[in-house]
Design a binder for these strands. Structure first.
Lengths: 127, 127
DNA sequence: GTTGACTTACGAAGAACTTCGTAGTAAACT
DNA sequence: AGTTTACTACGAAGTTCTTCGTAAGTCAAC
């Protein structure tokens, strides 16, 4: 089954859930209010919408509901990459890779890191 | 100066302008109506909005206005990749590269193509 | 020069997204 | 028990995006 693509604000919340694990609204707010300045009920509403969409699930055993990501980080990453390849690079993953390399060309350090990353991967290293 | 990020529909139009060069509304429509089923005035309106945003420019010397992309393909690609890295991969291009490799792992053919792409790039080949 | 086809301009509607205010409910603390 | 604090639910407003309908302008061809 295909899950809906998270919006920007939803993605910010998912990052918190991925990093911190199951969290109440207040826990999510704690991480996001400094950077986004967003209010409590905004997070709450978003989590409720995400629940409807199936992006998160919640534990209602306590009055203080606890939300956890139902969409795995890797699945989300793959989905976003696939969508990008489709909409921007005409379905060619090769062209995306080329663009990344082309993009990093200006920075010797960055290019070197990518080269190292690929080498590690070829040796069978996982992340 | 930072150009606005094209929306999905705007991006579809930009692809046409990148592929075909300067085009009138009808020319853009010809390419998009089969795939998207969208109407004439929709394309027109979008082009007008894109003109305001600075994504395209237009030649009004003839009654039939001709639009051309002001935003270069490569710049758009770079912008979309950067935004993806920022919003999904926590700013780490390395993690994006890893995800692409991880993603292609299932397909031997795809992985091989990426490997070849990187090799070509290292030899100084341009796209 | 009138008609008909094509074009632009523009308003508006519906959808998704983001945000918050208000109201009601549960818990906690004197 | 009563008050204060914290939480959930929900409606609603503002924004952007996408789409189209309608009106008005241009041009060629009859």
């Amino acid at each position: 089954m295909r899950f809906p693509k998270p919006s920007e604000a939803e993605l910010r919340i998912l990052h918190v859930l991925w990093d911190q694990g199951p969290s109440a609204v207040r826990d999510v707010l704690a991480k996001l209010e400094k950077t986004t300045g967003v209010g409590y009920t905004t997070i709450l509403k978003l989590l409720q919408i995400m629940l409807e969409k199936g992006l998160v699930e919640r534990d209602e055993s306590s009055h203080r509901h606890v939300y956890s990501a139902k969409l795995a980080r890797e699945d989300a990453e793959e989905r976003f990459v696939d969508d990008l390849v489709e909409s921007v690079f005409n379905g060619s993953k090769k062209r995306l890779v080329l663009q990344i390399l082309e993009d990093a060309k200006s920075s010797q350090k960055e290019l070197e890191e990518i080269r190292r990353t690929i080498l590690e991967f070829e040796k069978g290293a996982v992340r």
